[in-house]
Simulated scan of single mutants.
Amino acid sequence: MIFTTKAEYGVRLLVELGRQRDRRPRSLKAIAEAEGLPLAYLERIVALLKKAGLVESTRGAHGGYRLTRDPADVHMDEVVVALEGPVAPMTCFVDDTEGEATTPTPRARVLCSHHDDAGHGCATKLLWLRVQGGVMDKLAQTSLAELVAFAERGTADPTPPKEPSLA
Rank of each mutant, 00 (worst) to 15 (best):
T5P: 00
T5I: 15
G10H: 03
V11P: 02
R12L: 05
L17E: 08
G18E: 06
G18H: 01
D22W: 07
R24L: 14
R26C: 14
K29I: 15
A30E: 15
E35V: 01
E35H: 02
L37C: 12
A40R: 13
E43A: 11
R44D: 14
L48A: 05
L49A: 05
K50M: 13
K51V: 06
G53M: 10
V55H: 06
E56N: 05
Y65G: 00
R66V: 09
R69G: 05
D70M: 04
P71N: 10
M76N: 09
D77I: 12
E78M: 08
V79T: 04
V80G: 00
V81A: 04
A82T: 01
A82Q: 05
E84W: 01
A88G: 08
A88D: 03
M90Y: 01
C92W: 07
C92D: 08
F93D: 01
D95T: 04
D96R: 09
E100R: 13
P104M: 10
C112I: 00
H120D: 09
G121T: 07
L127G: 06
L127N: 10
L129E: 14
V131E: 15
G133M: 02
G134Q: 11
A140D: 11
S143I: 06
E146Y: 11
L147M: 13
A149G: 10
G154V: 02
T155S: 13
P160K: 03
A167L: 11
A167M: 13
A167V: 10
